[in-house]
Design a protein around this nucleic acid. Structure first.
Lengths: 230, 230
DNA sequence: TAGTGGTCTAGACCACATG
DNA sequence: ATGTGGTCTAGACCACTAC
């Protein structure tokens, strides 16, 4: 049960960095010194340090050496849960109701100029509307969307199983509920809602644009930053 | 200007996967076959495929082979910009005003039972309040906080330079502005605001808890998912 | 210019899971 | 049982850059 040597090297420096023992800007030993200390070949040391560099914990500069990176403020991992299991986990019953489905030519956005299916619906938890969804799906990229049974399965869930995206942008804002949204969600107009807008691609082909408006009091997003594996 | 061989191997499979040429579940050639095709050693192939595996694009199983991974829905990279440069980039003038600074013993949360400094202040863009901030900073972890000049530099910026965190949780919700918040931000009570709550640690020591309430009409968060490097 | 990391080789032994 | 990936070695040459 002895862990790989490269892992032990990586974990040792990981610990020293996270504990503050090696503060940001500190210099690590050279590969030669680490080789000698662990009695291993240079390739093993190189792979261990490369992993730390990929993870952003260290920064390597030729001729100068290897240094503990200044922490990057600007990136955390955002959890993007699927609504159905999330609501089921709360002990509530999930449902989706499709209110509109039509074809149209998109005028703007990353789907501009393409024929698309326009889908509007509501996500429910125990008969309480918790989110309204307005979606465009490229017919060129997803011709099968016409045959999908979207009466109960949310378009997002269906899409994910049939045409998983490889690239996505998400924009998160707070908005006041529009009158129609408010009535669907059982709110008063202007009540705070979380608005999530997402554009997705597969390779370079745009797939879908979706705008989801969630009741502010029953939905939250969670993000995490940390060393991750260890 | 010839790219490293390992990179070329990695990029080739990356492209085939993202284009859908190699769909999820498809099997990649064995390392032996790739060695032969590129005329390189096995180590080079191994490093290229390991990088793809770390990135989550492929999955490697002994005796079975290497396969294109089923895409993971549930994680995107959330950009967490520092407010000052963000506002400067808009061509506005940034300022922070500290309204309260006191010591207290925290009762709940990840700082429970610890003495802390309680800081309340407002972020401004061109004299318009755009966010109110309520923060607790552990005195045990950051004794220097007492000496910090927080009159103009936001506590978050100061903290980042002096005690960078290594781990953080963020919760994003939509809330209605409380009366006091509304008056500070020039809103009416109940107007939609984006609420960001973050807990941070350095190693296992809790550092700070912060709740920021942003004007819904002048702040947004952006997240991205994609192959990243290429 | 000398020391650092970046990359690569041509082997090797091992663990493991599948056929 | 066998073929796959996991890891490691003991070298090597090169590019870059801080000294």
């Amino acid at each position: 049960m002895t862990r790989p040597l490269g892992d032990r090297i990586r974990v040792q420096f990981e610990r020293q960095i996270l504990s503050g023992d090696l503060p940001p800007g500190a210099r690590l030993p050279t590969e030669q010194e680490i080789m000698a200390r662990f009695g291993c070949s240079r390739m093993t040391v190189s792979k261990a340090l490369s992993a730390l560099a990929t993870a952003g914990l260290i920064e390597r500069r030729k001729r100068a050496g290897t240094f503990v990176a200044r922490p990057r403020v600007h990136s955390m991992v955002l959890e993007v849960p699927d609504l159905a299991p999330l609501i089921a986990a709360r002990g509530q019953t999930y449902a989706f109701r499709l209110d509109r489905s039509e074809e149209l030519a998109v005028r703007e956005g990353h789907l501009a100029g393409r024929p698309a299916r326009h889908l509007v619906g509501v996500h429910f938890a125990d008969r309480q509307g918790i989110a309204v969804e307005d979606r465009l799906v490229s017919l060129a990229a997803v011709p099968d969307i016409a045959r999908a049974d979207l009466a109960r399965e949310a378009p997002g869930t269906w899409l994910l199983r049939h045409v998983p995206w490889t690239e996505a942008d998400t924009r998160i804002t707070a908005v006041g509920a529009a009158p129609q949204e408010a009535s669907l969600l059982g709110l008063s107009p202007g009540d705070p809602c979380l608005c999530v807008e997402r554009r997705t691609w597969r390779g370079r082909d745009p797939i879908t644009f979706v705008r989801q408006v969630f009741r502010g009091d029953s939905y939250e997003l969670v993000a995490h930053f940390g060393p991750g594996a260890s």
